[in-house]
Design a protein around this nucleic acid. Structure first.
Lengths: 142, 142
DNA sequence: TGCCGTCTTGATACTTTGTCTCACTGAGAC
DNA sequence: GTCTCAGTGAGACAAAGTATCAAGACGGCA
């Protein structure tokens, strides 16, 4: 089953209609090799209007098909996602984003909850650094 | 020593001038009891123009006097900060923000760095949940 | 087939949160 | 006095959405 079909099935299962506009947005997203800005995609996706484009993007984010990554300067990027709850490692040099399999804070959260009296319902974690290939490139250059 | 003096000294130590506009922004920030939006503060702070206001806010953020908190919906808030590196616990019900003393992820970061080959330079963590008082209020209501 | 309610769309205006530019000002150095 | 430079404010611009609203498409039902 293709990714496109997979996503449309997910949408239909939730009672959303599969319209040409939505299909166009999904296809444009699936073409992206790495992370992209909303603007990137909007210009590439001629099959839907601006409002529809953002609506569909939000819909897919809610569905977990796409996830939002905050870069170090606070600007948002989007990324096709094929897993549930996870975090990101963002390379500040080349902009590459790597998924983090395990949730690095799950254990620590329980302690925080106990200490603070909060009932923790969610969290947001992004890690920033330099990826292995950027690090080796600098070593060679030096 | 008052907070205002404390902050102006920090600015002077870095070679920044203490101007009436900067003083007005700092005073407005210190009046805030809890977290605030940029807009909140800008309307309250009549002593400086919009650009100057944002410049000063950024300056204070860089200086660590103010810190930026991302709410669950992605909207930014600001908060007077009296400590170094720390994270926030945000109550999704009343909007209260509590500082987290320890960095909950410091240990986990080393493991992630080893596993991924990244050199981790920074991270961003926010926790969302319901604070103790909101939880007890619901219990009473039920 | 026609009707009705609901979902979806696209154009467009608007909002929020900043940043950029540029002419001007004021303070300190010489 | 004048030169330099940090700082200022007005206003334009930008990114990333959101809100509104009329119009169209679609599905169910009689």
């Amino acid at each position: 089953m293709s990714d496109l079909e997979d996503i449309t099935l997910k949408l239909e299962a939730r009672g959303y209609r599969i319209t040409p506009s939505r299909r166009a947005v999904i296809a444009a997203i699936l073409q992206q090799q790495k992370q992209f800005t909303a603007d990137d995609l909007a210009t590439r996706c001629r099959g839907a209007g601006r409002a529809t484009f953002f609506r569909t993007l939000r819909l897919l984010t809610d569905l977990g098909v796409v996830c939002r990554v905050l870069m170090e300067d606070g600007s948002p990027r989007y990324l096709v996602s094929r897993r549930g709850h996870h975090h990101h490692l963002v390379c500040t040099e080349c902009g590459a984003v790597q998924d983090l399999d395990q949730c690095a804070v799950a254990g620590a959260l329980r302690e925080v909850a106990d200490a603070s009296g909060y009932e923790i319902e969610g969290h947001w974690l992004e890690l920033y650094g330099r990826c292995a290939s950027c690090r080796s490139r600098v070593k060679i250059a030096v």
